[in-house]
Write a protein that binds this DNA or RNA. Structure first.
Lengths: 127, 127
DNA sequence: CTTGACCTTCCAGTTACTGGACACCTTATC
DNA sequence: GATAAGGTGTCCAGTAACTGGAAGGTCAAG
């Protein structure tokens, strides 16, 4: 699968996909003509990266997360430790998103009609 | 409140807080000595920025979100529109986080004991 | 066998910080 | 009041994670 299709399937720009090859995050095989050739496994990784980056995980976080599925030499307890720590991160993010959604929903509710009422919920926003 | 305390209360590095002043995201008053002087309102904004950035929202997204609480000239319907669109974004992120948590939880469950078993749930990861 | 859409590398520019240098200000201690 | 520690200011350079553009090779269709 060439880079264009990998880009479309993962939702990442072609440039970004090439960048992830360059920094050794997702390195596809090369066809005889030198073109990058992505397989299903690599598409999955790209999709994952697309998501995780959009959720505020750094590339280093992502590298760690991908390693959970790759490094056969890592001990089970280490995998467990990393995974559990990432689950914690995720739960913090979940709470923050819930809180943001609640605040925005309140904003939508409180701002009905045509004129702009006072919506002083900035305090809520930064709670 | 000087920048150090603003940094501590918001959880953002001092450097970042200064940067947000520079790009006119959060611009505090200045004391006579030239020091930045943050009030509660600005602290709330900084806290909000700290969160929203960590959740993968761009500074432009953040600028829009902050504007919801600031721009008295904006019509109610426009506020509503932006807020609702951001709520959609949040809901997508929530789903993605739930899915990531589920996958990691499965990984933790499946990798018990001392040796590393096969954990081929990369497919799940990029679904 | 050319046209157009794809691919390659390389290099420069952007966003959002981040670190360091240097100087001024402030608070605590002598 | 001198001094030292630490906080603050600006400015400038560097980093992370892309992003755009140029120059050139590849491929499938007509």
């Amino acid at each position: 699968m060439n880079i264009r299709e990998a880009s479309e399937q993962s939702g990442l720009p072609v440039k970004t996909v090439r960048y992830y090859d360059e920094i050794k995050l997702v390195q596809p095989n090369r066809a005889e003509n030198g073109y990058r050739d992505y397989d299903e496994n690599e598409i999955h990784k790209l999709k994952f990266l697309s998501r995780a980056r959009g959720l505020g995980f750094s590339l280093e976080d992502c590298r760690q997360l991908l390693s959970l599925y790759e490094d056969q030499n890592r001990s089970s307890s280490s995998v467990k430790e990393i995974a559990q720590s990432k689950i914690k991160d995720i739960e913090v993010k979940l709470e923050e998103l819930h809180s943001m959604r609640k605040t925005l929903a309140a904003l939508v509710d409180s701002c009905h009609g045509d004129d702009r009422p006072e919506c002083p919920i900035l305090e809520e926003l930064g709670k």
